[in-house]
């Protein structure tokens, strides 16, 4: 719940870029008054861990992009990836985001039993 409010305030201040008293009050009001889901209480620590993971994923994504350009990946395959059971919707979203953000892999489907269907490209195998 506090993570929700912090996220909204960040977006509000990025959008308006204005730190007068009136604008801060309006932003706080909007952040508290907008409806939020009560289903999954997210903690502030989880939010910052998620943001940190996304920041770490950016250089990895660029490395994979350079790899894709220099070494043509022509083979496609679908693999199943195992994750822990009973994850909160926020964590599932974070997982899908991280897998899809890197260019070599894309999530196709999420199964409730704890499987992701992941589509990935890889270089052609060298014939011996």
């Amino acid at each position: 719940m506090i993570g929700d409010v912090v996220l909204r305030l960040i977006i509000w201040f990025l959008l308006t870029a204005n730190f007068t008293i009136a604008n801060i009050v309006i932003g706080l009001l909007i952040a508290f008054l907008l409806p939020r889901s009560s289903a999954s209480p997210e903690r502030l620590k989880d939010l910052f861990q998620g943001i940190w993971k996304i920041i770490l994923a950016i250089p990895q994504a660029y490395a994979e992009a350079v790899e894709l350009i220099l070494n043509p990946h022509t083979e496609e395959e679908i693999v199943m990836e195992r994750v822990q059971l009973r994850r909160s919707p926020g964590l599932v979203f974070l997982d899908i985001f991280l897998i899809t953000f890197t260019p070599k892999t894309t999530v196709l489907n999420y199964h409730e039993e704890g499987w992701y269907e992941v589509h990935q490209v890889r270089p052609r195998r060298r014939l011996p």
Partner: peptide, 19 residues
């Protein structure tokens, strides 16, 4: 190629290139 293969390449160009 298939839609999914093009999607991988587009994520390079549209997301990472634009960033």
């Amino acid at each position: 190629r298939s839609v999914l293969f093009k999607l991988h390449n587009l994520s390079v160009s549209d997301t990472l290139g634009s960033i």
